[in-house]
């Protein structure tokens, strides 16, 4: 058993940082999102005109802004990992706090987007595209909220393993949005 690995004794998962069970969750979540993306792609192929027309009603700039916000919060979380690895707990908490603020901004922008869509009478029942739009983005939104709770928790219990575990989840949330944004907003 190699002792220099982050999690010796965890078999194939021993080379990954943070709690190995988080990586099981990350992989399974990525597979679930991939399946949903495949479903979306299939439906789009069946009715591209409807999807194109519906995409026109999305605010692509707000979606892009949210991408920039989430990627910057990911940077701050990575800084928090660097800080805790150097035993700088206060600095790590400051970076986590900054990341949480940006995560909240992401939520605020998304809620604004949802409310403006609802105000325009666009709901998940409007058509297949908006069913996917609300379903996929709300599922991702739920992950953002869970990620924010995790970041809050590790800001309180700030250890290297805890911060690495929450960081891994938060970067997965980043990664999913990176794939979701072009799929829903841009590719037409």
């Amino acid at each position: 058993m190699r002792r220099d690995l982050p999690n010796p004794g965890w078999g194939p998962l021993s080379a990954l940082p943070g709690n190995p069970l988080m990586w099981v969750l990350i992989l399974s979540e990525m597979l679930v999102f991939t399946a949903f993306f495949a479903l979306y792609a299939g439906q789009r192929a069946l009715d591209p005109a409807l999807f194109n027309e519906s995409q026109r009603q999305l605010d692509t700039v707000l979606g892009g802004l949210n991408t920039l916000v989430l990627l910057t919060s990911g940077l701050f979380v990575a800084f928090a990992v660097e800080a805790i690895s150097a035993k700088r707990i206060q600095r790590s908490r400051q970076w986590l706090g900054a990341a949480i603020l940006l995560g909240l901004l992401f939520c605020l922008i998304k809620v604004f987007e949802y409310t403006s869509k609802f105000a325009a009478g666009i709901t998940p029942e409007t058509n297949a595209f908006f069913g996917f739009y609300y379903g996929l983005t709300a599922f991702h939104f739920a992950h953002v909220v869970f990620g924010l709770a995790l970041l809050g928790l590790v800001s309180w219990r700030t250890t290297t393993e805890n911060v690495e575990t929450a960081a891994a989840f938060w970067h997965m949330v980043d990664l999913i949005w990176i794939l979701l944004y072009p799929l829903i907003y841009l590719m037409r």
Binding site: L27, M30, L31, F33, T34, F37, A38, Y40, A41, G42, Q43, R44, A45, L46, D47, P48, F51, L175, L179, P182, L183, M187
Partner: peptide, 21 residues
């Protein structure tokens, strides 16, 4: 896994664009 996801996105897009399904 990322490449698979991108391939699926591209396939759905191209199939719709060229009316393959």
């Amino acid at each position: 896994l990322t490449l698979l996801t991108l391939t699926l996105i591209a396939a759905g897009y191209l199939a719709g664009r060229f009316h393959l399904v």
